[in-house]
Each structure stands twice: as structure tokens, then as C-alpha cells.
Design a protein around this nucleic acid. Structure first.
Lengths: 153, 153
DNA sequence: CTCACTTTTGATAAGCATTATCATTGCCTG
DNA sequence: CAGGCAATGATAATGCTTATCAAAAGTGAG
């Protein structure tokens, strides 16, 4: 899976005439390993562990290249700074963010298509994509809060 | 409606001990008039028409105050910079963004509650809020594109 | 395999947006 | 209406992102 994806990425870069360099490969490999939603700073720091000489500018340039190629997707949660995730094929999902600890979970249950027809009729837009974020309390913070309420009875 | 809302805002500010000043009032009044989704620069420029002496810092400070009080909501569309809209009571809606011209339209048809139960069961989160954005082509850009395709036949 | 060409890299400077500082102004309570 | 303190506006400082440029590295031809 990871290897197939990596090959597909390389092929896409070759097609567009971009060179497959050490820093770029390191970043792509890191992103296929990392299953979270790192921001640019985290990417930089993690990559530096294995490639100490890498520069911040290269990380910025590589990230925007991968965005342009559709390999990477950017998400903003609560309007905070950008976080990134690989755009795995056939992995439609959305994000659930804990209001207390900030933990991000993915969920796949999305029946947006049930609304989209109606929205298209009302607005006359032709909808191509959508993004959904839900905010609430994760199981850990939920039980912590329940404990706290109990204490106060 | 606008006046009632304005009074409610003032009351909330008084309760929290914030002073009701000229610049703050001007910004709130502007936001109740303006029905779009201005960014901080637009707010600054529009306010300066009626209050030429106002400083950018005051606009930033007032916007974050209004966000803190829940009077204003921030939205990020496509991860671009923040835009703002008043948090009118009982006005649940989402945003539809044109991929070509950037026009933003609101829509109210949202049946998120149909998914939320299932998501809560699967993830064990307690969902409190959600945000949905749809991207596509607005009616104008849609017909422009159709014309264009026709030309190429 | 080597060379030559072109892109990419890393270090650094430059550019913007946002936040902090601080003397002055102006709300608000008594 | 006067005193106290928060808010303002101008400006400096900060921090994130992009631009610049010489050196290094990838690629394709021979």
C-alpha cells in the first residue's frame, strides 16, 4: 500500500517534470508513515531527526508542491493554522476535534450526498467537493468531565 | 432585529465589564449592516470611511473581543485567511464557495443530525458543534463554463 | 560512467500579517 | 463632573512565509 502509493507519487512528479530528490523523498516517506495531521513545524522537526541538514524553506516548498500535485491535503481546524494529511485514494473522511484537548479523530460516515441535491436545487450551484468538521468532547475528556461533575454533587 | 441584537451585544459587554466605546460601536454597527463575510482588511477599510482615525490594532482587538464574546464567528474557506460573520441567534447555516470566482453563498439545509448519532456511536465523542463547507461552481461561473465548452465543440 | 545542463537546496534576507508597548484619550461610576 | 482605569492609536517588535542566490544534486545524452 505505502510502496504503491510512493511509486504513484514518484510517477506523478516525473510526469510533471519535477525531480525526485532526497529531501522530497524524505518528506513523502515521513508523511506516509505519520498517520496524524502534522503542521509545517512538526513536519520540519520530525524530518530533521533523520535529515539534520534540511532547511525550513525546503519543507515549505515541498509541501506546496505536494499540495499542487494533489498528493497532500490541507485542513484548518477551528480556523487555526494549517495541518496536512496525505490524500490517500478512496479514503473519504472528515475530522472530529476535541474542544478540550484538541485531539483529532477521523470518521468516515458521511451522507452529504443526501443534502447535496437539495442544496444544488436551492442555490443553483454545482457542488464538487465538501469538508465537514465536528467539534465536541473525546471519550477521555468526556469521562474526565463526568468525574468532575460527580465530585461536585 | 438589528437594534435588539445591538442592545443584546451591549448588555453582554457591560456584564463582562468591557466599555462601550465609539470604535467598538462603529465596528459592531458595520457588521450588522454588512451581510457578507469580510476579512479583517475589509473591515478596517470600510470602517475607516466613517471613522478615519481608527487604527488597525483597534480593529484586531475588537474582532478578537467579539469572537471571545461569541458575537462574531470566524470562518476559513479553503484554508485561506479568516473571514468573519455575525453570530445571529437561530441562524444555523453553512457556506458554499465558488471554485472559480470565490463567491460565498449561505445555505440552511443541513441534516447533520442524521449522521451525528452514528458518528457519536462509532467514535464515542460527544458532538457539540459542526461546520460544513461545500465547494463548486456558482450559477454564473457554471453558465460561463457551459458557454465555453459549447464554443469548443 | 562522465559531463553538462537545469532544477533544487540551504542560508539568509525581505515581506506581511498580527501582536505588544506605551503615552494619551475617553468611558463610566460615584 | 472629576478621578480612575480601560481603550485607543501610533509605532515597534514578533513570527510566519516567501524571495534571492550561490552551491549542490538530479537527469539525460553521449
Amino acid at each position: 500500500m505505502e510502496e504503491t502509493f510512493l511509486e504513484a507519487v514518484k510517477e506523478k512528479m516525473r510526469q510533471k517534470g519535477y525531480k525526485i530528490t532526497g529531501p522530497r523523498l524524505a518528506i513523502i516517506r515521513y508523511l506516509t508513515r505519520e498517520k496524524g495531521h502534522p503542521d509545517i513545524q512538526e513536519i520540519f522537526e520530525d524530518i530533521r531527526v533523520e535529515k539534520p541538514g534540511i532547511g525550513m524553506a525546503t519543507v515549505y516548498r515541498t509541501v506546496s508542491l505536494l499540495l499542487e500535485l494533489g498528493i497532500l491535503r490541507a485542513i484548518t481546524l477551528r480556523g487555526h493554522h494549517l495541518r496536512y494529511e496525505l490524500n490517500w485514494p478512496d479514503h473519504h473522511h472528515h475530522h472530529l476535534v476535541c474542544n478540550r484537548c484538541g485531539q483529532v479523530t477521523e470518521f468516515g460516515n458521511c451522507n452529504f450526498q443526501l443534502m447535496s441535491g437539495e442544496i444544488e436545487q436551492v442555490t443553483r450551484f454545482k457542488i464538487e467537493e465538501h469538508a465537514l468538521e465536528a467539534y465536541g468532547l473525546c471519550p477521555q475528556c468526556l469521562s474526565a468531565r463526568l468525574d468532575y461533575s460527580t465530585e461536585n454533587i
